[in-house]
Amino acid sequence: MDNSEFKKIKQEMSGKVNAIFDDFEESNNRLPTMEEFRVIIADTADNYLGPMEQNIIDGINTNLERQRIREKSLWDAITELEAEVRLRHDSDC
C-alpha cells in the first residue's frame, strides 16, 4: 500500500478518532486509555475493512494478504491519529 493510500485512510478515519476522544472525554472527564480507545475503535475498523468472508471469495491467499495489508495500514493510521490527538490535548492543558 503506497503513501497516498495511507494518507487517504488517515483522512477518512480522522473525524472518527477525534469524535471518539471528544465523546469519551465529555462522558468521563478524561481521555480514554490506549486499551479503551482500541476497544472502541475496533468495531469501526472492522466495518471499514468489511467482512473477511466477502474478501476471500476471489482467492484465498491473495485476498488474505490484501486484507492483512489493509488492516495493518488502517491500524497504523489510527495509531498515528491517536498520538496526534493525545499530543494536541496535552498541549491544550
Rank of each mutant, 00 (worst) to 15 (best):
D23K: 13
A42H: 09
Y48Q: 06
D43I: 05
P32K: 13
N55Y: 01
L49W: 07
E36V: 03
P51D: 14
M52F: 06
V39F: 11
I40T: 11
I41F: 09
I20K: 11
P51K: 15
D22T: 12
E53L: 09
P51L: 06
R30M: 04
Q54R: 11
E35I: 09
M34F: 08
N28G: 04
E35G: 01
F24N: 12
D43N: 12
F21R: 07
N18W: 02
E35V: 05
E26M: 08
Q54H: 03
G50M: 04
F37K: 10
T44I: 10
D43W: 09
R30F: 00
A19H: 02
I41H: 00
R38H: 07
I41Y: 01
N47I: 01
I56R: 07
N47V: 06
Y48I: 03
T44M: 01
L31N: 04
E26T: 09
L49C: 14
L49I: 13
A45R: 09
S27L: 08
S27A: 15
P32W: 12
I41E: 00
F24Y: 15
L49R: 12
S27K: 15
E25W: 02
S27W: 00
E53Y: 13
P32Q: 07
E53N: 14
I40M: 13
E25N: 08
A42G: 04
D46S: 15
E35C: 01
N28A: 08
I56L: 15
R38T: 09
D22R: 13
N18M: 08
M52N: 03
G50D: 09
G50N: 07
T33H: 02
R30G: 02
I20S: 07
I40S: 05
A42Q: 13
N29D: 09
E25K: 12
N29E: 12
N47T: 04
F37G: 01
I56Q: 06
Y48W: 10
F24K: 05
E36G: 04
G50T: 09
F24M: 05
N18I: 00
T44G: 07
I41G: 02
R38D: 07
L31T: 03
P51W: 04
I56K: 03
D46L: 10
D43G: 12
E36F: 11
F21C: 10
N28W: 05
D23T: 12
S27Y: 01
